[in-house]
Amino acid sequence: MDKAFLFSLSVLIPAVIGLIRFRHVDDSYRIFIVFLWLGFIAEIANRLLIVTMKTNAPSWNIYNVLEFLILMTLFRKWQVWKGRERWYLPFLIFSLLIWIADVFIFGNIKQFNSYFGIYYCFIIVMFAITNLNKQITTEKGDIIRSPQFIICIGLTIFFTYRLFVEVSLMPVFSISRDFFQRVFDIQVYVNLLVNLIYAIAILCLPRKRIYINSF
């Protein structure tokens, strides 16, 4: 097993804790736990495809759009779209069109297409930052223990670096395999860090308290 795969399995830490707590947490955080498991499934699918087809591009392309959709649902639950609700659907359709164009028209599903990847990393960083800013005024307790805050920090870090790596490795530059691997390693380490951040967020999810009235 190589380092990238081993590190990416760290998603199991928050995912398993999330699964244990799944029944006791709020709807929006359930979406997040599904997001973690989707990440894990994608890792496994990538592995299987590499072994069988020598490339994980198909699962990677599909995972991108699924991840995008699930994170958009999450942000909608967190009311990032509040007051602009009617733009939500047009926005989703627009994004899907970009994906289709990138994967089926300009590229093809058996190769790594980076335009949609760049677009959606950018969008997610924007939403995460918007939500972080919203938390400044709405969070009534200690913000560093707010799961929404921690998750958005994780998303911001991960997708900023992913965007950075993705842009550095754009197919417009011709690069060697070794160079690719080294730059890609940046994302591998960031991935590990972010999964640990997610685990903290999941541990911070408020537990439902039960009080029994004594009369």
Binding site: L132, N133, Q135, I136, T137, E139, K140, I143, I144
Partner: peptide, 9 residues
């Protein structure tokens, strides 16, 4: 952000 939130609070 953390500092600003504490101030606002």
């Amino acid at each position: 952000i953390i500092r600003q939130q504490r101030r606002t609070l």
